[in-house]
Every structure is written in structure tokens, then in C-alpha cells.
């Protein structure tokens, strides 16, 4: 049995108010309780990792934050203001961008089209307003700039179809899209699950870069070494509740896994 210290009390509380906050979220699916009163705060410029065993309620929690699920009770606050998300579009409109496990990129479309998918820009003047012509050149240039800003050098040509990219490059496209449009929070659901070691490291660098730009990141992952490499705080979900919120400084990987599996309490 591993010994743990009182984590929640010792955690240095950020002085700034949270950007995104969930209070007492409850979500049930028939008789199954997915979330049993979960609260979570996301502070500016931090990477908050959410870990937990299968069925612990990680995905349900994230879906409630992204509008993919509507909680039965509890409240969501964005910059202190109460918000209600009825669908992913609502969350997106509020500046919360999500990179899904399933990537949500369109394989046959090129990189630039994917970056702007769902919010294409039209040309100025009559061509745009009457003929609804797309500003393809402008979007391509902006896509290139966005990828450069994120330091994604492996993607030279934004007119390449996404299906011709490697898994890491596709993930980079998805992350770049989230970073380009996520003005408040970026949520990454298992971003490295399908990637090799080198590609995973690229994604971790992207996450660090987002934090560097002051954008808070919520990272859902099974991969403990990665979580401990990038996370500022770690929210441990267990049996539909938040078992503890720890930091890599106060807890070891073994401690976190012990809390996650119920072998220890924080």
C-alpha cells in the first residue's frame, strides 16, 4: 500500500479565478450513474489532466464540458458566468474547442479545408456575398501561419489531403484547429492513444506550447508518464466522483494510480 499525503489541502490554489468551472455535475444513464456530483476548475494557462479507470466517468465529465452530453443537474460557469450547452456547437461558440479521440477530421479534404471546416471564410465583395465563393487562398495562408505558429514543421503543404498524413500529423491538424479557434479552453481526449512514441512527443510539445500561450488545456489520458510530464494538476476520477486532485510535485505516478484504483485515498 502506498502512503499519500493530504493532497487537496496542500495544493497551491491558483490566485486567479477559474476560466471554466463545473459544480456538482450529476449525469445518469438509466440506472447507471455516470457522474455523481463532480466539480472541476480549469485555470488560465494550466494543463489539467483528467485520469481514471474505464467507467470512472472521465468521458461523461468531458462530454458535459463540451456540450456533447447535458448534465442532469449541476452547473457550468465560463469566466464566472453561468452557461448552458445544448450541443457541441454551443460550447464551440463559447470558445471551448475539443480534439476528439476519433479525430473528427475529414480524410478526403485537405489540411486547410479541415482547419476551417464548419467555419469557412468567404471572399470579399460580390463573389463572396452573391456567389458565396470561398476565400481558399486566404484560408490556406492562415492555415500555414497557424501551423507555423504551433511549430508544426512536418506539415509543409496544407493542400495535401488529410488521409495522406501520418497519425501524428493528423492529430497535429486536429490540435491546430482547436488552438486556432479555441479562445478559452482546449480539451484533448486521449490525443496520443493511437500514436507512436515520436508522434506522441510532438503532441505533448504542442500541449506545452498551448499552455505557454496562456490557453488552458484539459487533457484526458491513460498514459501516466505523459500525464506526469505535461500536467500542472491531475483530476482523478473514480466511480463517478472526483477521488482527488493532485499535482505531479506532491504525488508520484504510483500514488495517482493507487488513488485511481481505490488502493489509496488522497
Amino acid at each position: 500500500m502506498t502512503s499519500t499525503t493530504e493532497a487537496t489541502a496542500e495544493r497551491p490554489l491558483p490566485t486567479t479565478p477559474p476560466i471554466l468551472e463545473a459544480r456538482d455535475l450529476v449525469k445518469t444513464f438509466g440506472r447507471v450513474v455516470g457522474l455523481d456530483g463532480v466539480s472541476v476548475q480549469v485555470y488560465p494557462g494550466e494543463v489539467l489532466a483528467v485520469i481514471g479507470d474505464n467507467g470512472a466517468g472521465k468521458s461523461t465529465l468531458i462530454k458535459c464540458l463540451t456540450g456533447a452530453e447535458i448534465p442532469d443537474s449541476g452547473e457550468l460557469r465560463l469566466e464566472g458566468k453561468r452557461v448552458h450547452f445544448r450541443g457541441p456547437q454551443d460550447a464551440r461558440a463559447h470558445g471551448i474547442e475539443t480534439v476528439y479521440q476519433t479525430l473528427a477530421v475529414s480524410p478526403a479534404l485537405d489540411v486547410a479545408s479541415n482547419l476551417f471546416l464548419g467555419r469557412e471564410r468567404r471572399r470579399r465583395g460580390l463573389l463572396g456575398s452573391v456567389l458565396r465563393s470561398l476565400d481558399a487562398r486566404g484560408m490556406r495562408a492562415d492555415a500555414e501561419a497557424e501551423l507555423r505558429k504551433l511549430g508544426i514543421s512536418t506539415l509543409q503543404d496544407v493542400s495535401v489531403a488529410v488521409e495522406n498524413l501520418s497519425g501524428g500529423q493528423r492529430q497535429a491538424v486536429a490540435v491546430a484547429r482547436a488552438a486556432a479557434f479555441g479562445s478559452k479552453v482546449v480539451i484533448l481526449d486521449e490525443p496520443t492513444a493511437a500514436l507512436g512514441v515520436r508522434e506522441s512527443n510532438q503532441v505533448l510539445e504542442l500541449i506545452k506550447d498551448l499552455r505557454h500561450r496562456g490557453l488552458p488545456v484539459v487533457l484526458i489520458s491513460h498514459n501516466m508518464p505523459q500525464v506526469f510530464e505535461v500536467a500542472d494538476r491531475i483530476h482523478i476520477q473514480r466511480l463517478g466522483r472526483c477521488a482527488a486532485t493532485v499535482t505531479p510535485q506532491t504525488h508520484s505516478m504510483t500514488d495517482a494510480v493507487a488513488i485511481m484504483t481505490g488502493a489509496a485515498t488522497a
Partner: peptide, 22 residues
């Protein structure tokens, strides 16, 4: 040349990805 066209391709390519892209 229009956003509608790209959406048609995206929906046919991967419906769920298109939905998640808004």
C-alpha cells in the same frame, strides 16, 4: 468553391467527424 460543397464532401466522407466539426 463554396462552403456548402465542402460540407457535402465532409458529410459523405465521415458523418460523425463532420458533426463534431460543427
Amino acid at each position: 468553391r463554396t462552403a456548402w460543397g465542402r460540407h457535402v464532401y465532409a458529410v459523405g466522407d465521415d458523418k460523425e467527424a463532420a458533426r463534431l466539426a460543427g
